[in-house]
Design a protein around this nucleic acid. Structure first.
Lengths: 349, 349
DNA sequence: AACGTGACAGCAAGCGCTTTCTACACAAGA
DNA sequence: TCTTGTGTAGAAAGCGCTTGCTGTCACGTT
């Protein structure tokens, strides 16, 4: 059978209560006793029963991290940063929490199910990363869940996601996608581009909408007509970028620049342009978003907006663990930085 | 206060036992009763207390997925595939499990700590992905943990990791890294290359060793001297590839090909070569490993060995859930496929 | 010499479920 | 009419831990 607290207690000749206190270190225990207990734990190879412990203490050491797509480095990088701060294994001793990342695949139902599962586990904290789906009923359902989690004592942090007004206790670290999108397009306009294609992400997503809004704001600021035929929606993957570019080219072969929803999409766009015999940036400029590690290795290197994914994730993790003050008002905006590289240049004449 | 089973029972005018049975669906309950209970659950917005449930039932619905680096798509892709099969949210109903991925960062201690944490949570299954550290004491410690987990009823699956002889109950889906490495180098030798640089991964890792062994086997098979100065070790990241390439070039400027530990490293190698004014593949051929999504977008597209990460992950997930027969002997080898693309060509004369 | 006063350790009451065993009602066979 | 099933529901005993409260010493205090 598995070893229990009582077994350890018997071997150390103390009461179970004492063993518990030694293990939790939250109550004075004489050094000699502690040592005896620790030795017994070691001898018996005892491992605490998590569920029992959580039940009795009414808390758990689980911290949930929700991501839209774990195979996408955008989320991977944030998740790694968050998890590293969860203190988890390797972190400072004591608060040994289990930081777990859950992959929603961008599906609202899975997001909700995961939240319920975490609620069921009485998670200590939950971090939601990335853009939210903008479907109203779903947004309301998520907000309700977050509120309930908050009420149950779970710290909720949004990282790279807009604040949820209906769930005020959720701390939000929001990326300035609108500003980033605007900077990027301003840059291209500044180079002289006037006919810009835009490959947007999936519809009904905050990230998609904000980046697109930034793009349009830049166009408007320079009195460039926003032809709806120059915008195509697609998923956040290379394939979508490839196909969208083909479509944009079909609609208007005179395009001089393509702005993509993110770097991965931009890579697909580059591939399509290259196959179409167009040079980058001589014939068509390309810009991405996020500045993922591979972006600098694209040929030519991708002009993009760097988002401090690691820093934001780390901060979100610390806030979730209560190791850092939340920003005033519970909301902070994280800005991106325009990285001008080889994939953008002056338009062909 | 939070709602408990008893509250639901009271509202539905049944005993707690009945509510539990309705929720678990593992015992006959009259349809009318069931409906009454379900309505009460809904009315009260009841969420099962996971720890209590796990304690009483002596099982948990947690499935752990250990990865070396969650920010690396190599692991992200596998993790996504595994998690999708965990049934987790979105999967077929009933077996609603919480598939959680844990990032060890390649650190042996963190790996061990996570395993303990999972053991503490009485995880239903654990999947370890990617290469293992070859340090003997650590390997023994891990094997011991896996054995203990197995004894406690946790299904252990290794995905992309060599079998652990000391933990026979662990099912292993192993990548044929040696064979892949050999194929790759054979391909280059076939093109006429004789002076090949090799950028290996971190030392003391099974993946590193096996790929390198394959490379050496190919060299040996063609009577090409294996000059140790042509091999450099580094981390599995772009930076390492960049620096290692510079080093290789310094040691022998007459190199005609560089074989990298994986695609990410290969990208770094490409960057270094390009900066050194060398054309790919005209001056130097480059090959990667894994065939991550971005590899096809490199310029030129990367020659590499495709590993069926998604398929292997999915299979590992199913095995972990007991939905697929383990391979005979508990060990299966997953082969890679050589993808010849533009980054390799005949050596310059 | 009587009496706080710390510093530790133990008792025992749960935490909220699951599950075995028992109880009951009704239908059917003897 | 009396047993034997059959289908449901309840009572209650834990699961292994945490923690409030209650001792029990060994000391300084007055």
């Amino acid at each position: 059978m598995t070893v229990t607290l009582a077994d350890v207690a018997a071997r150390a000749q103390v009461s179970p209560a004492t063993v518990s206190r030694v293990l939790n270190g939250n109550y004075p225990v004489a050094a000699s006793t502690r040592e005896r207990v620790l030795r017994a734990v070691d001898d018996l190879d005892y491992v605490l029963n998590g569920p029992a412990s959580s039940l009795a203490a009414a808390t758990s050491d689980l911290v949930g991290i929700l991501v839209n797509d774990i195979a996408d480095p955008f989320f991977g990088i944030m998740a790694a940063a968050i998890q590293s701060e969860i203190g988890g294994p390797g972190g400072r001793a004591g608060g040994e929490r289990l930081g777990v990342v859950c992959n929603t695949g961008g599906s609202p139902e899975r997001e909700l199910t995961y939240l319920t599962l975490l609620q069921r586990q009485r998670a200590a904290a939950v971090v939601l990363t990335g853009g939210a789906v903008e479907d109203a009923p779903h947004a309301a359902a998520v907000a309700a869940k977050l509120r309930k989690l908050g009420d149950a004592g779970t710290q909720v942090v949004l990282c790279g996601r807009p604040p949820a007004p209906d769930a005020p206790e959720a701390i939000a670290l929001t990326f300035d996608n609108r500003g980033g999108g605007q900077q990027l397009t301003e840059h291209l306009i500044g180079l002289g581009h006037r006919r810009l294609g835009y490959i947007a992400g999936p519809e009904e997503r905050t990230t998609t909408r904000h980046r697109l809004e930034g793009h349009r704001a830049a166009l408007a600021a320079h009195d460039i007509e926003d032809d709806p035929r120059r915008t195509v929606h697609g998923r956040y993957d290379r394939r979508a970028g490839y196909e969208a570019t083909l479509e944009l080219l079909r609609r208007d072969p005179s395009l001089t620049a393509v702005v993509a929803a993110n770097d991965t999409v931009a890579l697909g766009a580059c591939a399509a342009l290259r196959e179409a015999g167009l040079r980058i940036p001589d014939d068509v400029s390309v810009a991405g978003f996020d500045d993922l590690p591979f972006s600098i290795d694209a040929v030519p290197a991708l002009t993009t907006v760097r988002l401090p994914l690691s820093e934001a994730g780390a901060r979100a993790g610390r806030i979730a663990m209560g190791r850092e003050e939340p920003p005033p008002g519970g909301i902070a905006t994280v800005r991106g930085e325009l990285m001008v590289r080889g994939s953008t240049g002056v338009p062909r004449v």
